[in-house]
Design a protein around this nucleic acid. Structure first.
Length: 945
RNA sequence: GCUCGAAUGGUGGAAUGGUAGACACGAAGGACUUAAAAUCCUUUGGGCAGUAAUGUCCGUGCGAGUUCGAGUCUCGCUUCGAGCACCA
């Protein structure tokens, strides 16, 4: 019987689909396990071999857990909103919904060929109104909540209103955009619009006027994680800073919980570190400085409170509100010129050239410890958005302050014994403090830090500052609120209309608010987002429905929001929706949530470390506060699969000719390397006929060969169409079968490692499957499994394999499990094992990796059940015991000979036998034995002198 | 600049502190075949000695250290990759 993978795979895939083999429902009698892949954006290019890597890894785990008796949820869906479909729409007029549906169908077709155990009844698409209803719902809940710092959770905004009515802002501990102070009476005196403006300062989803990353080429704002090196992540267009009114999510309120949560989850250290970096917690001190000859006071933030005696100037961010207050009349013209100049500099300019720039404000601050007058400067090296937008500069111990002081000739005062600040600042937080205060100088209450270590000095200053009302201990985070508006068409509409310029939620029972049709997908002539082109995009509050824009009267019919939500909106809670995908009354029913709880194993790329993986943790925490999600963290374990890179091939054309030189000879000519389609190259050898047929211009190509072959050059690059190095999984499945593809992708190397795709090795995986198949058949091809009892050797091979494979799946070391199979199958073939019980267990072990062939063999072994219900075999240690062990005998660590011992020999016996062995005598002659180390089962080491 | 990770044959990669290079690819040689493909077998880190079996030395980026014994642990470098980056 030949291993006919085409027939086998087709047959079982059809059967799994028809019988919904992988459909799951909550089952209280079984333990649950939730496996999840980061759902794909269905791009027009289809899947390449890199995409399924994570899906295969998680599918193996899902099947493994199912065989171990767990009720396994393994869903799949599509992150269907996105820029490419919209840009395609702009170019072609094709509605993004059509493109997206088409691409999804293509993805599905490709995925189905690989034999995944997905429960397709739970499929979600973020662009489906039944799905985004709950994205909109979550947004409305965020709008209706504020973050209470005392309770450390989100609470309904009504509670905040009640607090204002009773006490104003007194005693309020809430996350806020800016600090407000008012009394209960003042609150009550405000009109409705004013009150709404105040509440906006606290809402978790709020409309904020902030500096945003504006990308003129894309015509939209972008989140911080979507901007890389000053250009847009998608397309690489320049991004500028612009003040705009935008929807924002108060992610920063959750900074501490996002940080703390990292300790409770099983993620790689590197991704946790990346998130810690991104959250950027920094413990420091806020200190109040007064301004000389003025009542004005201002606050700065510093992590180096100990350096207060070394402050020689202060710096304000150009955007700081203090700038106008502290600029003196005689300095005004110069300051304004500077502000104008910095405004023009984009983020990119600031990165590209770090020229020191700044201007003196004319004012002096007073050092609260010494009473010294310190000049206040303005410079763009201080950021408005971090801390208080103002700093105390200590040039001796901060490199940025140092550069500034050098440039403007400001004094530099070293505070640490032995610190040499003639060339550069001394930034390290170590050493003994001096000059604090300097000899002969006075300080407040005689406060002195001299003689302390830096750490002691920081602590002492914090204590002094707090006790004397000079400031307070403060924790700052680098994590900013997420900007949640995009000026785009293809995204979730905001369920919001505007009355008196203030946003109002459309009633919850009217959700979803469906995306309207527009004539064109570009911004309007007046520069409004694409939704501005919609003619039916107004809200009628009488009928609670969408209506024509012409009916807007600002009395009962109001304009709707024109922005849409960003990509991460739909992907932030999709794992919850999979638990209960068709529920029309809740994002997820409590019963479903309580059963499936959280994702046990999440697989996806590490490029989402500061995007999706932060946003969904935030989103989940918010839903947890609401009582919707029972777990604080959405993803208990995260495995990051590496990228599969492309391996490109090159041909070398002699300049200005149509002659191509083989790799080994190319240095003799003046050549240009040209990418060549990897599909017409085998083991780096070019198929000359296929090459001539590839492009018309190569039809008459000549070749300079070596050994009669044309050898191509190669390089590892990103897998992409333009490099002609895309390998399509369909092609592999067609030629070798899905099981071979699955096996080979896992065999390629550790799952978390990026590696180039190399089709060359795939034969090995195919050969292994064929050998495995042949194990079940006699030479003549007939079924050969018998009921004979397994031999001792059979059982030893089998149980060794059980142990290895179980361990390796548990630790995601699939690349080492597969060699174990190869060895075991080789051994069983040699043993001519046909014993049914052994073969059955072998099929069970193989099932997660190669489900189709396992299913076929399982049915031939006369089972009615599918192989995913085959119990996972247990390793019985008794079969692994050896009768004799071979130990290497070493002298001073160098192996000299080997000796066989009974497996149960004692250490003393081994030691004595090793010393008296004939081969040992020449090493022992005239030497003294210092000690003998016996490692059971491994080694005997005799130390001699 | 700061943080994290990595470095092993021609290649992908194995090695609870205990015989480094499993397994696979590639390569070389052989069997079968009219031939090719497919399949099977053998060899495959390097040097030296030997007709040979074999012996022997070197070898996990570099340099130290701990240990009877280090690819593995510690310290210091080098190179590469990733993240953050005027975050006070």
């Amino acid at each position: 019987m030949e291993y006919n993978f085409r027939e086998i795979e087709k047959k079982w895939q059809a059967k799994w689909a028809a019988e919904k083999t992988y459909h799951v429902e909550p089952d209280a009698s079984k333990k649950k396990y939730y496996v999840l892949n980061m759902f794909p954006y269905p791009s027009g290019a289809g899947l390449h071999v890199g995409h399924p890597l994570g899906y295969i890894a998680s599918d193996i785990y899902a099947r493994f857990m199912r065989q171990r008796g767990y009720n396994v949820l393994n869903p799949m869906g599509y992150d269907a909103y996105g820029l490419p479909a919209e840009q395609y729409a702009i170019q072609t007029g094709q509605h993004p919904a059509i493109t997206t549906t088409h691409n999804i169908a293509r993805y599905r077709e490709q995925l189905d060929k690989i034999g995944f155990s997905f429960d397709w009844d739970r499929e979600v698409r973020t662009c489906d109104p039944a799905y985004y209803k709950w994205t909109q719902w979550a947004f409305q809940q965020m709008f209706g909540s504020y973050y209470d710092l005392a309770a450390a959770k989100a609470l309904p905004i009504d509670k905040l209103v009640a607090h204002f009515e009773a006490r104003g802002t007194e005693g309020l501990q809430a996350a806020q955009s800016e600090e407000l102070t008012f009394s209960a009476d003042e609150w009550k005196a405000m009109d409705s619009v004013e009150q709404q403006k105040v509440l906006m300062n606290y809402r978790i989803a709020y409309l904020g006027e902030t500096m945003v990353n504006w990308c003129p080429a894309l015509g939209t704002v972008l989140a911080n994680d979507e901007v890389v090196d000053g250009v847009s992540e998608r397309g690489g267009h320049p991004v500028v800073q612009k003040k705009m009114k935008q929807w924002c999510l108060r992610v920063s309120a959750y900074a501490q919980r996002l940080l703390d949560g990292l300790d409770s989850i099983d993620w790689s250290d590197s991704i946790k570190e990346t998130q810690r970096n991104w959250i950027g917690r920094s413990e420091g001190t806020e200190m109040v400085f007064s301004v000389k000859d003025s009542d004005v006071k201002f606050t700065i933030f510093t992590t180096r409170a100990d350096t207060i005696f070394g402050v020689t100037f202060m710096v304000l961010a150009p955007e700081s509100e203090l700038v106008s207050v502290l600029t003196t009349a005689d300095r005004r013209a110069e300051v304004e010129a500077y502000l104008e100049a910095t405004k023009k500099r984009t983020e990119r300019d600031r990165i590209a050239d770090r020229r020191v720039s700044g201007v003196f404000s004319g004012s002096y601050a007073v050092n609260p410890f010494t009473g010294d007058a310190i000049p206040v400067w303005i410079s763009d090296y201080v950021l408005a958005g971090y801390g208080t937008g103002a700093i105390m500069a200590v040039p001796a111990h901060d490199s940025r302050d140092y550069a500034f002081a050098r440039h403007f000739n400001l004094p530099i005062l070293p505070l640490i014994e032995g610190a040499d600040v003639s060339e550069e600042s001394f930034d390290a937080k170590e050493g003994i403090v001096q000059n604090s205060p300097a000899a002969g100088k006075q300080s407040l209450h005689g406060f002195s830090l001299n003689g302390l270590t830096v750490k002691e000095a920081i602590a002492a200053t914090k204590k002094f500052v707090t006790e004397n009302g000079l400031g307070r201990v403060k924790v700052n985070y680098r994590l900013r609120d997420a900007i949640f508006s995009r000026q785009r068409y293809w995204g979730e509409p905001f369920p919001v209309y505007y009355k008196d310029g203030m946003p109002q939620l459309i009633p919850q029972d009217c959700l979803p608010l469906e995306l309207p049709e527009v004539g064109r997908f570009l911004p309007t002539e007046t520069g409004e987002p694409p939704l501005g082109n919609a003619t039916r995009w107004a809200w009628d509050t009488k009928t609670n429905s969408v209506t024509d824009n012409t009916r807007i009267d600002h009395v009962s019919v109001f304009p709707l929001e024109l922005s849409t939500m960003p990509g991460f909106a739909g992907s932030s809670a999709y794992y919850l929706r999979y638990m209960d995908p068709t529920n029309d009354n809740a994002l997820v029913a409590p019963e479903a949530d309580n059963y499936w709880k959280q994702v046990d194993l999440y697989i996806g790329g590490s490029e989402h470390a500061t995007g999706h993986l932060i946003y969904s943790r935030f989103w989940n925490k918010f839903l947890h506060d609401l009582g919707v999600s029972c777990c604080e963290e959405p993803f208990a374990k995260l495995v990051n699969q590496g990228m599969i890179q492309g391996r490109s091939n090159f041909v070398y054309r002699i300049k200005d000719t149509n002659t191509f030189v083989s790799l080994g000879l190319k240095d003799r000519y003046d050549v240009t390397p040209i990418h060549v389609d990897v599909n017409i190259v085998q083991n780096d050898q070019l198929d000359l006929e296929a090459f001539k047929a590839w492009r018309p211009e190569y039809e008459n190509a000549d070749f300079v060969l070596e050994d009669g072959k044309y050898i191509c050059g190669s390089a590892v690059e990103k897998m992409s169409k333009s490099m002609y190095n895309v390998v399509n999984p369909d092609r592999i499945v067609e030629n070798y079968g899905a099981d071979t593809l699955r096996l080979y992708e896992m065999f390629l190397g550790p799952i978390s490692q990026s590696k180039p795709w190399d089709s060359n090795g795939i034969d090995g995986s195919f050969r292994f499957l064929r050998k495995t198949w042949n194990l079940f058949f006699a030479n003549g091809g007939e079924w050969a499994v018998t009921d004979e009892a397994p031999t001792k050797d059979n059982l030893k091979t089998l149980h060794k394999l059980i142990r290895k494979v179980t361990d390796d799946i548990t630790t995601f070391s699939y690349n080492t499990a597969i060699p174990a199979f190869m060895i075991a199958v080789g051994e069983l073939a040699q043993q001519k094992c046909k014993a049914r019980s052994v073969m059955e267990q072998l099929v069970s072990l193989l099932a997660p990796f190669a489900p189709h062939v396992a299913e076929e063999l399982w049915s031939r072994l006369d089972h009615d059940t599918t192989v995913c219900d085959a119990p996972w075999p247990a390793c019985d240690e008794q079969y692994l015991k050896e009768d004799t062990v071979t130990l290497s005998v070493s002298f001073n660590g160098k192996t000299r000979f080997t000796l066989d011992f009974p497996a149960d020999a004692s250490k003393d016996d081994i030691q004595a036998a090793a010393l008296s062995a004939e081969q040992a005598q020449k090493y022992l002659e005239g030497k003294q034995v210092v000690k003998v180390i016996v490692v059971p089962g491994r080694i005997v080491n005799i130390v001699i002198k």
